[in-house]
């Protein structure tokens, strides 16, 4: 079969909503796009453990501590499935991780913002996981099979996290004056970065067109962002708090909320590495990896020794 024939079969599958599986023929660019996207997603889960992990030792009650630990552990689990999904495309976890550490691979910029107070843990769950879910629900229908299946599992846990985050803020919103202030302050700081999670406007998004054709992506950045704004603008009423956007207003004609413009200069700066915590996050990941090297080596050496002994016995 010629490459043209193979490509035809591939496109037919996409057309007919048949998932692409690891052993199927696929265009190089499709493979590369999926490697880039899935590994970026895996890295986001792992780097995302850091801002929330920052509050584990200081969680205000034992119950909150246990919930937060379990949540961050879930993120690690998501990273694990996603690295496995990346491996089905022919790249090892170690290579992928090296790309993160060298700065070649990206992760979600949202994790380059600091968690300054306990309320940030609520805001991350509600806004950041909420924004991530918008994207991930769409990805349960993505064309690459292993990615779509990983997403189904991840989405279930993420929606649980979002409810937990909202509940943290709900308790604060009904608490003391200081707690209410803490709650509003966290929303003020996380709202715009959460909107940035959907990426540039459609007309400026470099990878979007091809990804839509291949059904890797199934909704545009702006469409997902609008869905998110519509959802949060309603939920915040329950908290009795305000979103920090004076342009936020229901548009009866469009049946959507209008909202203000994102600060794109800030967005691109954080992408380029100039966010408040870019350096700390990457340093922390590199440090964990480098300090773990002797451990990984010892485990591998021991496993080898044991296999030899068993073979000799």
């Amino acid at each position: 079969m010629t490459v043209q024939d193979l490509e035809k079969i591939f496109l037919q599958k996409i057309e007919n909503e048949i998932k692409i599986e690891p052993r199927d023929w696929m265009p190089d660019a499709y493979r590369k796009t999926n490697i880039r996207q899935i590994s970026q997603h895996a890295h986001s889960e792992i780097v995302g453990m850091l801002p929330e992990g920052n509050w584990i030792t200081r969680a205000p009650t034992l119950k909150r501590k246990a919930i937060l630990l379990a949540k961050v552990q879930d993120e690690a689990g998501h990273g694990l499935y996603l690295y496995s999904a990346t491996e089905t495309l022919g790249i090892t976890r170690e290579e992928t991780i090296n790309d993160l550490h060298s700065g070649r691979a990206k992760y979600s910029s949202i994790f380059n913002y600091p968690t300054l107070t306990w309320a940030d843990i609520g805001a991350i769950g509600w806004l950041v996981d909420g924004a991530a879910i918008m994207n991930q629900v769409m990805l349960t229908r993505t064309s690459y099979g292993p990615y779509a299946r990983a997403m189904v599992r991840i989405c279930k846990e993420e929606s649980f996290h979002q409810r937990q985050g909202f509940e943290i803020l709900l308790v604060l919103s009904r608490g003391s004056k200081e707690q209410k202030e803490m709650c509003q302050d966290a929303i003020n700081r996380w709202w715009w970065p959460a909107l940035m999670m959907f990426g540039p406007h459609d007309k400026e998004s470099t990878h979007s067109d091809q990804s839509m054709k291949w059904k890797i992506k199934r909704k545009s950045n702006d469409e997902l962002r609008q869905n998110f704004v519509d959802m949060i603008a309603e939920q915040i009423k329950v908290l009795g708090m305000k979103l920090p956007d004076e342009h936020l207003q229901w548009n009866e004609e469009k049946k959507h909320y209008d909202f203000g413009e994102i600060n794109w200069e800030e967005f691109w700066n954080v992408v380029k590495g100039n966010g408040p915590c870019n350096k700390q996050r990457l340093d922390a990941r590199r440090k964990a990896w480098e300090e773990g090297e002797w451990v990984r080596e010892a485990a591998a050496t021991y496993a080898e020794k044991r296999n030899k002994r068993q073979a000799a016995a």
Binding site: L50, G53, I56, T57, V72, Y83, A288, G292, V295
Partner: peptide
């Protein structure tokens, strides 16, 4: 304190 900083996932 190890959470997020372990030697391997």
């Amino acid at each position: 304190e190890w959470c997020g900083h372990g030697p391997v996932l």
